[in-house]
Amino acid sequence: MKGRNMTRWRDPAKDPRQEPKSNLITAEGAQRLRGILDHLSRVKRPALSTKVGEAAALGDRSENADYTYNKKELNRVIARIRYLTKRLDELQVVDRLPADTRRIFFGAFVTLEDEEGETMQLRIVGHDETDTDKHWISVDAPLSRALLGKGLDDEATVAAPGGETTYLITAIEYRDPQAGS
């Protein structure tokens, strides 16, 4: 049986998507998610409800593309609101610096140097805040796991598809969440 909803079978014990995600988030990340939820609830959902109502008033809904599109979009927004509401209740906001700022913990800005001498800067954040453009990686990522608890000038080895890579930690920085970004 083939269909667009059929996917390849994966062993649940080995599927990385089934691994539990941490429920940590930075104060800035939580504020951003609340802002998105507020925008969806107060602006986007009422506007789409109005569009759906206007399109439904035009008559036959079966051939009304405007009605169909806006109804699907409204359902997506409602699902996103439901997800964000549930997720924000589960999250634990980390709004203080760790006791030992000389070691890498959640929220740290880290500068790494690889074996070829190239540097990379990243930040360890929650699963909901990852951003490849900013080089913010999840606390659940293999690189983050290898870095957690390490100090300045320590080495961290990470298994990568091309083999193991070793990084030297050259800088660790934290920004006070109380002072704002």
Rank of each mutant, 00 (worst) to 15 (best):
T7S: 11
P12I: 01
P16G: 13
T26V: 08
R32C: 01
R32F: 09
H39T: 10
L40F: 07
S41W: 01
S41I: 02
S41R: 06
R45H: 01
A47C: 03
K51R: 13
V52L: 09
G53I: 00
A55K: 01
A55F: 00
G59H: 05
R61N: 07
S62D: 14
E63M: 10
E63W: 05
N64R: 08
Y69C: 00
K71H: 05
L74K: 03
I78H: 06
A79T: 12
L84W: 06
K86F: 08
R87W: 10
D89A: 15
E90C: 04
R96K: 15
P98R: 04
A99D: 15
A99T: 12
G107C: 12
G107R: 02
T111I: 08
L112H: 04
G117R: 07
G117N: 10
E118W: 06
Q121P: 00
V125M: 07
D128G: 07
D128V: 08
E129H: 08
D131F: 07
W136G: 07
I137M: 07
I137N: 08
I137C: 08
S138M: 14
V139Y: 12
A141G: 14
A146D: 11
D154G: 15
A156C: 03
A156P: 03
V158Q: 11
A160Y: 02
T166C: 09
T166M: 07
A171K: 13
R175H: 10
D176V: 10
Q178P: 01
S181M: 06
